[in-house]
Design a protein around this nucleic acid. Structure first.
Lengths: 194, 194
DNA sequence: CATCCTAACTAACGGTCGTTAGGCAAATAT
DNA sequence: ATATTTGCCTAACGACCGTTAGTTAGGATG
């Protein structure tokens, strides 16, 4: 089937783009570069995609939707704060480790989106941040969490989770589940012996 | 004095470049852009600087040296691990918050350095990481820290500290000293009430 | 077999990139 | 007063950018 070939090529292009955008950044990656990796001419890419930015949009919003979807599913479970927190961190880390290239692009290259996509993206990110903020709030209300500054705590957690791409290797000894478990342990109890 | 004017202009260029490199990224910032901010032509920049990359080099290595210098001074103090850890985090956060633009460039744009600068830079970063790794090691040997995976713990801490630029506002209610204090508290004891 | 469609090609577009050369007016030094 | 230096200018270089137009070979479809 013809459409299947197209879809495959389109997927190949997206895959290559994710990789190059991650490695060199969106602005420093040219269409000729992407095409070269696939052994075709830059102009040929336009049989499959609309523009360079369209690729970026797809990467950013695909991941944003994954994060939001997982947060909505977790919210429906009506778990106590501590358990919700554990599962949320685990889910977040699962998504990141399963989409390493996309994640880095998602985290750092979204600023090259043009309007209205840029605003939409920021809004989705804010929604997701609020999901975590509410977990912290709930934990504090349940007298389970002790939080001095909510924003600081929130971003300590996000930064630690989102920084995973800096050191994670898919075939290393630490697998996503264990990373999540250990990270939760650090967030909840710290590194001090008692 | 003529050299004073040059130095000032050079500093202005560096200052503007730091700001634009942070805001738009190195690759997406053009010399014409930097010049435009200063009200001159792009070609005129070359009376003061050698190349675009030279600016990036200066930003990256200036900060790398600050981090290393502060780590060497702390090491000379021969403090117990927990106290050393506190002071190291405080110093790191001080440097970041005092150099917000440079920090973001330092953290994300170094990959656009060409050789041999790229390798030199990575080496300096590794040295600094080892300083922190040794603090964790020392804390574990003193039976003060409980660390499951050293690399994971190390990068949780680094990511949290380096992510400060995502949310810090110089005139907000949280000042660097207090951020450091609260972050140390989270790292050491976590957010769980006991 | 004739027709259509796909995925690639070549050629080229207007534009921007970092950088160099050469000149010129004002400031500084002698 | 003269000579030198400075800080900018204009013009231009070759290279590369994202993208469009038009074409063509070859496979799928009738």
């Amino acid at each position: 089937m013809a459409t299947a070939i197209i879809k495959n090529r389109k997927q190949q292009i997206h895959h290559t783009a994710k990789n190059l955008f991650r490695e060199r950044g969106y602005a420093a990656t040219s269409m000729r570069h992407i095409a070269g990796e696939l052994g075709i001419e830059a102009a040929s890419l336009y049989s499959h995609i609309k523009s360079k930015e369209e690729i970026l949009q797809l990467i950013c919003f695909e991941l944003a939707e994954q994060f939001l979807k997982s947060s909505e599913e977790l919210q429906r479970k009506k778990l106590p704060a501590k358990e919700l927190f554990k599962q949320a961190v685990t889910e977040h880390i699962r998504i990141i480790t399963q989409n390493m290239d996309s994640s880095v692009v998602f985290l750092h290259e979204w600023r090259h989106l043009s309007e209205p996509f840029l605003s939409d993206f920021k809004l989705m990110r804010k929604r997701y941040e609020n999901f975590y903020k509410n977990i912290l709030k709930a934990g504090a209300e349940e007298k389970k969490f002790q939080i001095r500054d909510e924003k600081l705590t929130l971003f300590v957690i996000f930064s630690a989770m989102n920084g995973i791409y800096e050191w994670f290797t898919p075939n290393g000894k630490l697998q996503p589940e264990e990373i999540a478990e250990q990270m939760v342990e650090v967030f909840l109890n710290g590194i001090l012996k008692n």
